[in-house]
Design a protein around this nucleic acid. Structure first.
Length: 412
DNA sequence: TCTGGGGTCCTAGGACCC
DNA sequence: TCTGGGGTCCTAGGACCC
């Protein structure tokens, strides 16, 4: 006998989230072709549904969008505002069920199991009611998918966008699977799809017909988990618990590309500052600092440095970064972006001093960091910066090279 | 006319130990 | 000096996600 609803997982995804957030506070732009962009001259972060239908994709360069739609309105991204609305959306979801897992800024998984009796509705009706609740309170539309596993719930949510609800029950599974291509599965990227197609597979129905051993030998553990989820077997639970972050990365690209070591160092130190800010915001410490460089062909190189003990001060991290730079920086090579990553993160429980360490020094460094934080909060992120990264503002890559060589010497 | 800025998880292979 | 088999830890890198 088939159990009608062994599990009930919903996936809730805001439609064109960044753009919808902008429209929520600028309703006069509704219906006009608009995109949200990162830095000026960069790429698309969000687009209206109409533009999406006409082929505008996320990460598309702005020049390409403007070429096709000269009247397009480009809105600068305001992540603080998006985070604010995002938190409100998750709060609304939490009123419906305590089991909400925040998956990204605009997406969440909900465990709806057992709620039919409470709300006197079936799962599809509950999903619809949640969707309408968010629309009424925030003016944002969301798409909701409901099914027996996370993977199927997420795929269901894609079927009816925007502002739609789609339910894939266990009984209807066999009629749904032939409609999904392999690329529709979250977790199957380009490479996996190519491999499966070489095996003669076309749809999700074909994939679930493979034997367990065959899937394991082709795709290892991750593929096998998805195989089970697509067959209606729950593998991944909804995990409302907060998981501590495993790594912190801050990177940024620049134009034009450059091999100028002064500029690259200043740019990298700027990323280090941002990463330290994030570290302290998270109340975490790091024990491994890494440098990342991305070259013209988008290949990246990275080197890391282990610290003897964990830290959350800018000066410790800068020392580590200097060591990496001295040892590994490939002089003369042209790069397009640089970045810094912290690994081996731990919760900040306060400093533990060894016999030979100087608590006074630590306290002064900590006070310095706190003072920097206060200034940044009051006057903006660029109000106080390390001298090394200050060169950045003076020495945009457009400055003539000779000028640069004269004016700035990196003294580390 | 290539292409942003974040993240997670998994595997393979080497070093080292018993 | 040569012989097994098994475990853990670490690192590098791939694949994928929003």
């Amino acid at each position: 006998m088939v159990v009608p609803w062994p599990e009930a997982i919903a996936h809730c995804d805001a439609d064109s989230f960044f753009l919808s957030c902008e429209l929520a506070r600028r309703p006069e732009l509704k219906g006009k072709p608009a995109v949200v962009v990162g830095k000026l001259g960069s790429c698309v972060l969000a687009k209206s549904h109409d533009l999406k239908i006409q082929g505008i994709q996320t990460a598309m360069p702005i020049w390409e969008v403007k070429k096709r739609f000269p009247n397009v309105i480009c809105l600068q991204a305001d992540f603080a505002w998006y985070n604010h609305l995002s938190a409100k959306m998750f709060a609304i979801l939490s009123n419906w069920t305590p089991d909400v897992e925040v998956y990204s800024v605009d997406e969440a998984f909900l465990d709806l199991k057992g709620l039919r009796r409470l709300y006197k509705m079936d799962y599809g009706q509950i999903a619809y009611a949640i969707k309408e609740d968010i629309k009424r309170q925030l003016g944002l539309t969301v798409s909701v998918g409901v099914s027996v596993s996370r993977t199927l719930a997420k795929m269901a949510g894609e079927v009816n966008k925007p502002d739609g609800v789609t339910v894939i029950s266990a009984q209807e599974l066999s009629s749904w699977l032939p409609k999904f291509s392999l690329g529709d599965v979250p977790g199957f990227g380009r490479n996996t799809v190519a491999l499966l197609e070489k095996c003669g597979l076309k749809t999700c129905h074909d994939f679930v017909q493979l034997s367990e051993d065959k899937v394991r030998s082709l795709l290892h553990k991750p593929g096998l988990q998805l195989w089970k989820e697509l067959r209606g077997q729950k593998v991944f639970s909804v995990e409302p618990a907060f998981a501590p972050q495993q790594m912190i990365t801050r990177t940024s690209s620049f134009q034009p590309l450059t091999a100028d070591q002064d500029f690259l160092w200043a740019h990298t130190v700027r990323q280090l500052e941002r990463a330290v800010d994030a570290l302290r915001d998270n109340e975490q410490r790091t024990q491994e600092v890494a440098l990342y460089l991305r070259d013209r062909a988008f290949h990246h190189s990275g080197w890391s440095h282990r610290l003897p003990s964990s830290t959350n001060t800018f000066s410790d991290c800068l020392e580590a970064l200097k060591q990496i730079w001295r040892r590994h920086f490939p002089a003369g090579k042209v790069f397009r972006s640089t970045g810094v990553t912290f690994f081996r993160l731990s919760q900040d429980l306060g400093q533990q001093f060894s016999l030979f360490e100087n608590p006074g020094l630590f306290l002064r460094q900590d006070q310095l960091e706190q003072a920097k934080r206060i200034i940044k909060n009051r006057y903006g992120q660029l109000a106080i910066r390390s001298a090394s990264s200050l060169r950045l503002s003076q020495l945009g890559p457009n400055v003539k090279k000779s000028l640069r060589a004269k004016a700035f010497n990196v003294e580390w």
